[in-house]
């Protein structure tokens, strides 16, 4: 067991866990932040996606001991961000979700995409969202919602 000070959604959190524990399980079980989901445990589905220092990261394979000082943002905190809020709103307005289980990860991946690429093409979307599985396959509306969020965020910015 070791103690870690984590910066999560702008707040300092202390946890005492085995160093090998993936960030996912620290979030879910030690910090009771269950918005980040367990889907596969091998970084193949993206349900566990969070931002670590702004980079979309699969929290299921990152040991907590590797995080250090880097800021973590999860689905619970992404709404505080302009892009994050716009993506969440677009998801709701576009009626994207079905079972909804993968959508935390989809939203985190989409926010990372839009932060780097404000006007993504279909190819950009295929690439950035390419590692996130939605078993309901709501992909048509995910694509639409990303474009809607992009339009909303770039509105008036021309």
């Amino acid at each position: 067991m070791a103690t870690y000070q984590l910066n999560i959604n702008g707040q300092r959190k202390e946890v005492n866990v085995d160093p090998s524990t993936p960030l996912l399980w620290v979030l879910r079980e030690d910090l009771k932040m269950t918005g980040t989901k367990f889907g596969c445990g091998i970084s193949a589905c993206g349900a566990c996606t969070v931002h670590v220092a702004g980079v979309a990261t699969r929290s299921c394979i990152v040991p907590v001991s590797h995080i250090g000082e880097r800021a973590i943002v999860t689905i619970e905190g992404i709404g505080q961000d302009t892009v994050g809020r716009a993506v969440q709103d677009a998801w709701v307005d576009t009626d994207v979700v079905q079972c909804g289980y993968c959508q935390s990860g989809q939203i985190m991946a989409a926010v990372a995409l839009l932060k780097h690429t404000p006007k993504p093409t279909d190819a950009n979307i295929d690439e950035s969202m390419g590692g996130n599985i939605c078993r309901c396959a709501t992909y048509v509306r995910i694509r639409e919602a990303i474009k809607n969020a992009a339009a909303e965020l770039t509105k008036g910015g021309e």
């Binding site: 879910r28 079980e29 009771k32 932040m33 269950t34 918005g35 980040t36 989901k37 367990f38 999860t74 689905i75 619970e76 709404g79 969440q88 998801w91 709701v92 009626d95 994207v96 979700v97 909804g100 289980y101 959508q103 935390s104 939203i107």
Partner: peptide, 21 residues
Amino acid sequence: VKRLDSRPKCDGTLKFGLDLD
């Protein structure tokens, strides 16, 4: 009519069975 369960499925607040504590 839009789904009633969208918002909590988009902000991490909806609890699935696996999230139970």
